[in-house]
Every structure is written in C-alpha cells, then in structure tokens.
C-alpha cells in the first residue's frame, strides 16, 4: 500500500520534471513570469503597508496579522502554480479531446492533469509569500509553544490543501460546460482573492458563502484567527477537517465529470 503511494508520488514528480525540462527551453519566459509575480504580490503588500501607515487596525486586525492572511493566500497560489498548474488546462483538454491519452495510461487522470504544466510565477509567489509569513510571524503578537508551532504547520498545510482542492473542483466544472476556457474556475479564483483580508469586513451573506459554499476563508482567515486567538479561533481548528472534506468533494466532482467526458474534437 505504501509502495503504491510512493510510486504515485514519485511518478508525479517525474511528470512534473518532464514539464520543467520542457519549460527550460524558454528561459526568458521563466524570468519574466517570476518577475511579474513578485511585482504583483509586492504591490499588494505595499498597499497593505500604506493602508496601515494611516490606520492602526482593519476590523480589529493589526498589520502583521493581515499580512499573514495575505501571505498565506500568496503561498497557496504559489504552490498551486508551481506544482499543480495543469489543473487549469482541463477545460482546453476536455474541449479538444486531448484528455484521451490521459485516460489510457496507468496513472490517475487527475494527477496526470495537474502535473501537465508548470507555472513559474508560482516560484515568485512562493518565495515572496514564505518570506512574508516568516517576517509576519516574527512581528505578530502571537504566543509561541512547540504545540502551537505544530498546529501552525498543520493549519497552514490544510489551508493550502483547501485552496488546491477548490481549484480542482471548480476547474472540473469544465466537464459540464465544455468551453475552451475555465470561466467558472477563474471567477472562483477571484472570489478566493477576497480571503486575503479579514472576513469581518464583508457583509454577513458573503461571510457565510466564504465559510461554507466556497470555503476560501479557511485558506487564510480562520487559521490565522486561531493562531491569534481571535474571534473565530475555534472555527480555525476545523481547517484540517475542511481540507479533507474539500479533497473528497473535489475528487467526487472530478470523477462525476470524467463519467461525462465525451472525447470531443476528433
């Protein structure tokens, strides 16, 4: 059983490595994308810093904690682009029938899909985001203990999983829509951007949606809330459970979609 898991993981790295080799032919692209990613995320950070230079709190949250939320989304997006960028190709693959070959190979279709592209912008996001998290953790008013550190790692990991699973689930909508572009996933990605800021600033309806229907609040706000012992501290502990649920839902939706696949385009 563990052998099977190891093989799956090893092959994922192998498939991704092939994409990396392919992308290595376009070195200028690589630099441009990293530069653009750092610039985009950096500008967001400047915005936050400029805002907090005039106001001490945003809905009761201090700068470093908001920066932490912001950076968690940045890191999750970075991991998504770097390691799972292929997810975004599903719409095109369904539309063109390119998915056929994935279905006749002895490896899970979703994993073949997710490893079918590399987004170098993710490297920029990941480096900048991680740096932001480290700095924010140093300055944020948090109580530290070994247990707390362990929980931090668990929650942060779960937050990333929530984001990735949501991305897979929303991209799987392409099985039904069959358009060439992942419109639904892109719109949901933008919804996910709202999670960069404290949930409390949004109207109640939106807060409920971001907690339940599209639980992006678990990618940043709730975990940070737990760490900072904020208003929604207990909900924050649910993050791993939400992550597991999201993964199961994403796999279920993907499988349902795959049953609908009609292999068009030929």
């Amino acid at each position: 059983m563990t052998g099977e898991w190891m093989r799956t993981a090893r092959l994922y790295v192998r498939l991704l490595g092939a994409q990396l080799r392919a992308a290595a032919q376009y070195k200028a692209d690589f630099l441009v994308m990293i530069f653009a990613a750092v610039l985009s995320q950096g500008v967001g950070l400047i915005f936050l810093a400029a805002l907090f230079a005039r106001v001490p709190h945003l809905d009761g949250w201090s700068f470093w904690l908001v920066a932490l939320m912001y950076a968690m989304v940045t890191v999750a997006e970075g991991i998504g682009s770097l390691l799972f960028e292929g997810t975004w190709r599903l719409a095109a693959m369904v539309n063109s029938g390119e998915l056929d070959y994935l279905l006749v190979r002895p490896y899970p279709v979703a994993l073949q899909l997710m490893s079918s592209a590399v987004g170098f912008n993710g490297l920029g996001n990941l480096v900048l985001g991680t740096a932001m998290i480290v700095v924010a953790l140093c300055y944020a008013p948090l109580q530290w203990s070994p247990l707390q550190g362990l929980i931090l790692v668990l929650l942060a990991g779960s937050a990333v999983v929530v984001k990735l699973a949501m991305n897979l689930a929303t991209n799987a909508a392409s099985f039904w829509l069959q358009g060439r572009n992942p419109v639904v996933a892109y719109a949901m990605h933008q919804v996910g951007e709202l999670a960069r800021y404290p949930l409390g600033i949004y109207p109640v309806g939106l807060r409920v949606v971001l907690t339940t229907v599209v639980p992006f609040a678990f990618t940043s706000y709730y975990p940070v809330s737990y760490l900072a012992d904020g208003v929604d501290a207990t909900i924050g502990l649910l993050t791993p459970a939400v992550a597991v649920a999201c993964v199961f839902i994403a796999i279920w939706v993907f499988r349902r979609g795959l049953r609908r696949y009609e292999s068009a385009g030929s």
Binding site: A28, D29, V32, M33, A36, A37, L39, S40, N121
Partner: peptide
C-alpha cells in the same frame, strides 16, 4: 522581444 505577453501584462497591471 518576448513571447510571454502574460508576464508583461501582469507586471504592467501591477505597476
């Protein structure tokens, strides 16, 4: 000069 307009576009939007 570059094939990667997406990156250029992102950078410009950010600036």
């Amino acid at each position: 000069w570059t094939q990667n307009y997406l990156g250029i576009n992102w950078a410009r939007v950010a600036v």
